[in-house]
């Protein structure tokens, strides 16, 4: 899982710590349906199990999300990727990178891990074809030296899936 090393990982700021602790408590009380967080003592990296919703293409499939928090979370978006094997989806690259605007340009500090998870599940659920993005090979090749998806300049062009 070396590909997931985030760029220049700095320790969480105190604000980020407080906020994440709060989110963790909230998650434990009220986890989003279909997700399981394997709590570790590493607050800065969450590994979350995703269960495909029933009645969708991903029913009975389980994937793992890896969420890495930057120093200035929540001002800055967390890095969210699927740990390969990633689900086959028109917006999910085989290296686990997810093309979803809220993870990058449209991030807002009012979002939470929980709300991100729901967005990702919704993205999976609305998929009509199990396929990789058209530019998958090119993109993955470009990212081979462990580049973070946050360094990618994404084009968000599809509002259907």
């Amino acid at each position: 899982m070396t590909s997931s090393s985030a760029p220049s990982r700095k320790a969480l700021s105190k604000i980020a710590c407080n906020r994440l602790q709060k989110e963790l408590v909230e998650w434990q009380l009220n986890p989003p349906a279909g997700f399981k967080h394997k709590v570790t003592d590493n607050l800065q990296r969450w590994v979350i199990e995703v269960n495909g919703a029933s009645g969708t293409l991903y029913t009975n499939e389980t994937y793992q999300l890896q969420v890495d928090f930057p120093e200035h979370y929540p001002m800055e978006a967390p890095q969210v990727i699927f740990i390969p094997p990633a689900p086959l989806h028109p917006h999910i690259y085989s290296n686990g990178h997810i093309c979803l605007d809220i993870l990058y340009d449209s991030w807002s500090p009012a979002m939470t891990v929980s709300s991100i998870c729901i967005s990702i599940l919704s993205m999976l659920s609305s998929s009509t074809a199990k396929q990789r993005p058209a530019d998958n090979d090119r993109y993955v090749k470009n990212c081979r030296n462990g580049r973070s998806p946050k360094e990618t300049r994404w084009w968000f062009h599809d509002d259907k899936v």
């Binding site: 605007d101 340009d105 994404w154 062009h157």
Partner: peptide
Amino acid sequence: STSSSYSRSRTDMR
């Protein structure tokens, strides 16, 4: 600004 047809671009968003 990235030409995104999906939603408003970064500069607009923020």
